[in-house]
């Protein structure tokens, strides 16, 4: 008898709670856009934050509300943008893929030092004291802050100099922010040429301290005037101009600081 009563009472309580839960589920139901799950499946899911939203889910919600563009996911690039465009019904989409670029070519074998830095091993800390002991105030410090910042494993440190993997790089811009010397910028993927120097020191100074630095000789400017321009003792390239043959400049550059993929 006792057993029967307990089964009944417990069963009844269970039933009441089940009914309450059922009601609550109906009452608190959140209408979720069916596209959200599809969009989340398309997005890379690395939550890198490069789009400016707080992670991929936030980006997906904003996309449905129309607050961001389908091309907003920098990490996903062209492929994701096209898929998102299909889901959202956007058409006629043209996306220019970009790529992180290291504007320094001096690895630790050629970098010259004036003192030994023995503090915290990050670029940000080294840059605070006497330019990290380097003679060059503008070049790579080599402690790999960009390497640590990259969420896509697209940066390798080779001889103390970061090297970008063009296939893995999504141009999220995290390394651009991480570099205390602003050596990294984003250039269009279609342009394989870049200037691997960031030094605004005058030519004779650069000659003394770095074998691969831009000495502002203006040879590139003379050979390919459409693209190169020397300002502030540094060859500056117009990266938006693609399809122009820069080979003469690359060949004639005396310090070989113009590089090609």
């Amino acid at each position: 008898m006792v057993i029967l009563i307990s089964i009944l009472v417990l069963g009844l309580i269970g039933f009441i709670f089940a009914a309450l839960l059922g009601l609550a589920a109906g009452y608190f139901k959140i209408e979720e856009d069916p596209r959200l799950a599809t969009i989340l499946a398309i997005l890379p899911g690395s939550n890198c934050g490069a789009c400016g939203s707080a992670g991929c889910h936030d980006f997906a919600e904003k996309l449905i509300k129309g607050e961001v563009l389908v091309s907003g996911c920098l990490a996903g690039g062209e492929e994701v943008a096209h898929k998102l465009a299909q889901v959202m019904g956007t058409e006629g989409l043209v996306i220019h893929k970009r790529l992180a670029t290291i504007h320094c070519g001096a690895n630790e074998k050629v970098r010259t030092k004036r003192s030994n830095y023995s503090g915290i091993g990050t670029c940000a800390a080294a840059n605070l004291i006497d330019d990290g002991g380097l003679n060059c105030k503008y070049g790579c410090l080599g402690y790999g802050d960009c390497f640590c910042a990259c969420p896509f494993d697209a940066i390798r440190m080779v001889d103390g100099l970061p090297v970008i993997d063009p296939e893995k790089c999504t141009a999220c811009g995290k390394c651009v922010v991480a570099c205390p010397r602003a050596i990294i910028s984003l250039r269009p993927y279609a342009n394989p040429v870049w200037v691997a120097c960031n030094s605004r020191d005058p030519g004779p100074v650069v000659r003394k301290i770095c074998p691969v630095g831009c000495i502002a000789c203006k040879i590139c400017e003379k050979l390919v005037p459409e693209v190169f321009k020397v300002t502030n003792n540094l060859a500056v390239m117009d990266y938006t101009k693609t399809g122009i043959n820069c080979d003469p400049a690359i060949e004639k550059c005396p310090t070989k600081c113009i590089l090609k993929l």
Binding site: G119, I120, T122, A124, A125, L128
Partner: peptide, 13 residues
């Protein structure tokens, strides 16, 4: 640990 050095760097950051 380079504590104070971290704080100096952080203040600057």
């Amino acid at each position: 640990i380079f504590l104070v050095q971290y704080f100096k760097a952080a203040k600057r950051e």
